[in-house]
């Protein structure tokens, strides 16, 4: 859950680890995420279509991955952290029945702009589904 209190820039230490977040990958999450991001590509909601593409099942779309990355960082940073960037590289697909666990740590602090950079990864049973950096401005 997102803390009610936003972290203050002064409270963040270089190298500080974010609490891990395990996200069970379900058909509901993949379908619901695709539709909530208005992505109707069949491979994200139609298992037969996904199999015809050579995938074992429906697979998560990028915009859902973005949402989950936002959640992972926001739950740590608090409600008034302002996102400056959300940059990801995509790796192994997320299929139903798997679990993606996010981990991350603070890799840069800029006192002038009160910006914190977090480097993170979301790993499933096949490897990293996503790696990347997020920059947020803290009060």
């Amino acid at each position: 859950m997102t803390s009610k209190n936003t972290k203050r820039f002064e409270d963040v230490r270089p190298g500080e680890a974010l609490p891990e977040l395990a996200v069970p990958v379900t058909v509901t999450l993949i379908n619901g995420g695709a539709i909530a991001t208005r992505d109707y590509f069949p491979g994200h909601h139609d298992a037969d279509a996904a199999r015809a593409l050579g995938s074992p099942h429906v697979f998560m779309n990028i915009l859902t991955t973005n949402g989950l990355v936002q959640r992972f960082v926001e739950q740590w940073a608090g409600p008034e952290a302002v996102f400056r960037s959300l940059k990801i590289k995509l790796g192994a697909p997320n299929y139903p029945g798997d679990c993606m666990t996010f981990s991350g740590s603070v890799t840069q602090l800029d006192a002038d702009t009160r910006t914190v950079e977090i480097t993170l990864g979301g790993k499933n049973s096949m490897g990293n589904h996503v790696t990347g950096t997020v920059a947020v401005v803290l009060p």
Binding site: V23, G32, G33, A36, T37, G67, R71
Partner: peptide, 16 residues
């Protein structure tokens, strides 16, 4: 409405 639907499925609970 679109924001609520998105927050629900992503598990984003930030009230802002």
């Amino acid at each position: 409405p679109m924001v609520r639907q998105w927050c629900e499925i992503m598990g984003v609970d930030n009230p802002v």
